[in-house]
């Protein structure tokens, strides 16, 4: 909780902590009679890029789906700018995993982005000037405007990911949720996308939360990390999460795991020996 409500201290005076754009409070979710998530607390403030990391089955996707209102909460609540339920869901842009989208569909990049606004356009109505403008602005934001007439089936993996991001941005969301945006992409593409997400957070003041298995990329690219395994084990800046015990708990790994070395947070040799002795 203290990490979540960090007060910004400037020139000696204490400023009220800004209300987080996305607040997850004590969320528990039961799926098929199994408690897959409990006591989950997480805040994402405007302008933050938070990486949600944890092993398979840790409940990352379930947490995203809870935020979207797609699974029933057993307890707890999710608010976006203080709003709950449908009002909260409207302020969230969702970027699902790439395979969720029917890429063989005969549709242009621009129309795919417009499809993100289907609900705000409303029943019985066709997209209007406002909607096209929003789609154009979103495509500009992800630098895909030059391909807006291209059928989506002819795009590369990185371009597809950008289209999905633009589709979410077309709603001008306060919160952007990204589910495994890097799966199946090469390193240069991953880095370009990370830069884009950071830019969306910093320049547009969007609260960005993404799940990822690219831990090294997350440590370098995210402003904050959230370690998840059935519950939130820790949140903080990458520098704050330097205790190997947290990572060992989140990922169920041993203290000599190459993962910790790769992340540059392996325990010092003396500490490791102390661990062996005990």
């Amino acid at each position: 909780m203290t990490l979540a409500t960090r007060a910004r201290v400037g020139a000696g005076d204490v400023v009220e902590p800004p209300r987080p754009a996305l607040a997850v409070r004590d969320v528990a979710v039961e799926l098929g009679g199994r408690l897959v998530l409990h006591g989950a607390d997480l805040d994402v403030g405007a302008g933050e890029l938070v990486g949600l990391i944890g092993p398979n089955g840790a409940g990352k996707t379930t947490l995203l789906r809870s935020i979207l209102g797609l699974v029933r909460l057993r307890s707890g609540e999710v608010t976006v700018d203080g709003a709950r339920g449908r009002a909260a869901a409207r302020a969230i842009g969702y970027v699902p995993q790439r395979h969720e989208f029917a890429w063989e569909f005969p549709i242009s990049v621009e129309d795919a982005v417009l499809s993100g606004r289907v609900r705000s356009i409303g029943w019985l109505r066709r997209p209007g000037v406002v909607d096209y403008r929003a789609a154009r602005a979103a495509l500009d934001r992800v630098r895909m405007s030059h391909l807006r007439k291209r059928p989506v089936g002819e795009l590369s993996g990185g371009q597809r990911q950008r289209v999905l991001v633009a589709r979410a941005l077309a709603l001008d969301p306060r919160v952007l949720l990204l589910d495994e945006p890097f799966t199946g992409l090469d390193v240069p593409t991953q880095e370009l996308l990370t830069a884009l997400f950071a830019e969306l957070a910093q320049q547009d003041g969007t609260a960005v939360l993404m799940t990822t298995h690219d831990l090294v990329g997350a440590v370098h690219g995210c402003t904050r990390l959230c370690l998840l395994n059935r519950t939130v084990i820790a949140t903080g800046t990458p520098a704050e999460l330097d205790d190997p015990a947290l990572w060992m708990r989140a990922f169920g790994i041993a203290e000599h795991s190459p993962l910790l070395t790769a992340l540059g947070i392996s325990s010092s040799p003396r500490a490791a020996r102390a661990g062996e002795r005990s």
């Binding site: 209102g69 797609l70 869901a89 699902p96 969720e100 499809s115």
Partner: peptide, 8 residues
């Protein structure tokens, strides 16, 4: 196009 997004 995308059931999950439509649901969301």
């Amino acid at each position: 196009l995308d059931r999950e997004m439509a649901r969301a």
